[in-house]
Design a protein around this nucleic acid. Structure first.
Lengths: 351, 351
DNA sequence: CTAGCATATGACAGCGTTGTCATTGTTCGG
DNA sequence: CCGAACAATGACAACGCTGTCATATGCTAG
């Protein structure tokens, strides 16, 4: 490896003190345009890269974020991770990823240790950990900064910054879509108890039924988990009913894929005999036949926004020390994606 | 946040010099058992965490690895990432992840920059980047250390350490399984050109046919990509043949899922009319009906082993400076997993 | 009893930056 | 034309640790 050049080499080449180079690197505005240019050229020729370790050590700022997740969905995690990573790269931050188990009792210690070891400026926390009040309170206690990605149509709590996914209204929209297709007998398969999104989506569903004066059939509401297997089991249960539903709204695409398979097993035609909608727009939803109607959330962008917002929030905190910096709240609404699995307008199924 | 304790606080509490604490942290063996104990207690009470940035800066060692990948398969990537991460945690290393595009011309610069910025001790490179000689040569040139995860039954090149996946023999095994079921007309759907695994698996397949004296039908061999869509298209093509195959061996589970869907679309019974085998044992393979026969590779363990091996190799290099340290080569063979998609013994299909 | 050596520990510089404060050069009002 | 205020830059300590070398202590052999 070519001898690594450091800040002093750059300074020598540019004919300035190394402190001035430091100023240029950090975009401080007290350096003359002329000097800036010379320094930047020197950086270019030497192919200089500032040493993150030294920056961290010397500065009071930290140049790393942590991404904390406990999520079985590989697509989601990777998408989010990539979003955060691009923001970090743009801003010159490092990213430390931390998969973990939300049910671990020592989770707070675990996080605190990581924050200290790696000198993290803040954490980005995704569900379900981001929806566990105990954990969040403990982090506040330790004065660890974070931003949450959560499922919520509206947030009262003014304390911590968060990025909200308006699952409720998106679910409302999907349900209305099914209703417009003529469905009155719609089942809802809910995901994990511990995930806020499960409940938000269910609310949206129930709201849509209510506002369209459709009565809720209790045997159409099944609680389960975000898994293919649950979809299969629940579908069997539904299809065995005396009066089976004509449409199923599944809390995510994986469940929907399960329902689809169970339906096909029984020779049921989708969407003509049974319409199926999912949620998430995962690759899953495009790799079934027929393709699934679903709601698309821009996970990459959401995560990226979270990172960006966290970084900004942190620097505001630094400036406005003491005075209460406002916690940003951002909202994203997943958008309806209509595909073949619901493309059939019902005539008169039950009567 | 409680004032962070540093190495000197620990030293004061334990009544030793801070250098001794450093020794304990680094498991050096010149410290008396008694002292070690006292220091460890002090570390415990103060909840001390060594500062990684300072360690990196001060030491000649680097305490971070990079994981470089360009892979569309989320399950694979996440699995590998988790494996590497657990090894890193155990050894006190940081992990810097670096998704990238193998087709990017500046990829080497990109990697070099990252290595410098983040002071990486070495890289873990997965396919297809790990199979691009140009890139590897450039890294050698820059004296950047790495370990590769590649698809190979045997490696001659003694230069760089690698973890090899014996896809070829695993594919041989799957093919023999199909042959034992009575199949003589077996198609092979190959994945991406740029992935060594595609070719290795194809070799294994062809070898198995040859060693069982089965003639290869050229129209049964289709090259494509590791995607669901390819599976669908190729299946249509195969099923339209005058003499369609009775079994299909797909280069991965995603392709197999595509074939399965295309088959069901045409009302073809799997496995009774058509046997399908995949490769990889991704969650995909368990979420189809029928479930897919496949080959399981312990991705997590493989990646973990790669990390471990890289770390060990690096410290050997450090010791045996100048003298040529041997490059470790490790082999993993994916194992056959038989499921419903091939569970049917053929009677006499074609005659 | 002491030179000689191994074992255990300490003192101190230095890693590459940023933060703080000092210094220089420059402009402007009176 | 002078002093004050400001803009641009530099000098140097400090960050928390590791590497190197020096020192203290205990032990063995002659």
């Amino acid at each position: 490896m070519k001898k690594k050049s450091n800040i002093k080499d750059v300074a020598k080449l540019a004919g300035v003190s190394f402190k001035t180079v430091s100023r240029v690197i950090n975009n401080e505005d007290t350096v003359k345009g002329d000097t800036v240019k010379r320094v930047k050229e020197a950086i270019e020729t030497l192919n200089y890269q500032p040493n993150n370790a030294a920056r961290n050590l010397a500065g009071s700022k930290a140049y790393a974020l942590g991404y904390v997740y406990d999520n079985p969905n590989a697509y989601y995690v990777l998408d989010a991770q990539n979003g955060i990573l691009s923001e970090c790269r743009d801003r010159g931050y490092e990213l430390v990823i931390h998969p973990c188990s939300a049910t671990n009792d020592n989770i707070v210690d675990e996080l605190a240790t990581m924050v200290k070891r790696s000198q993290l400026a803040g954490l980005i926390i995704s569900p379900p950990l981001s929806e566990m009040p105990d954990v969040l309170a403990a982090l506040d206690e330790l004065n660890i900064k974070y931003i949450r990605i959560i499922s919520a149509a509206h947030v009262d709590d003014m304390k911590s910054p968060c990025v909200c996914i308006d699952d409720q209204n998106a679910a409302f929209e999907i349900t209305e879509h099914l209703i417009k297709q003529g469905h009155k007998h719609i089942a809802f398969l809910r995901g994990d108890e511990g995930h806020g999104s499960s409940h938000e989506r269910k609310h949206g569903f129930l709201n849509a039924l209510a506002s369209n004066n459709i009565e809720t059939n209790p045997s159409y509401l099944i609680d389960g988990s975000y898994s293919f297997e649950f979809g299969v089991d629940a579908a069997k249960q539904l299809l065995a009913l005396k009066n089976p539903p004509t449409a199923v709204f599944c809390c995510n695409d994986e469940i929907a894929a399960g329902v689809l398979f169970a339906a096909r097993l029984q020779g049921i035609d989708v969407p003509n005999q049974l319409a199926i909608a999912g949620f998430e727009d995962s690759p899953f939803s495009r790799q079934t036949w027929p393709k699934l109607t679903t709601a698309a959330q821009p996970t990459n962008l959401i995560a990226r926004t979270a990172a960006s917002s966290l970084i900004q929030h942190l620097s505001q905190l630094k400036l406005a020390k003491g005075s209460q910096a406002e916690s940003p709240k951002l909202y994203f609404r997943p958008t309806l994606v209509v595909r073949e699995s619901t493309e059939h307008v019902l005539e008169d199924p039950h009567e």
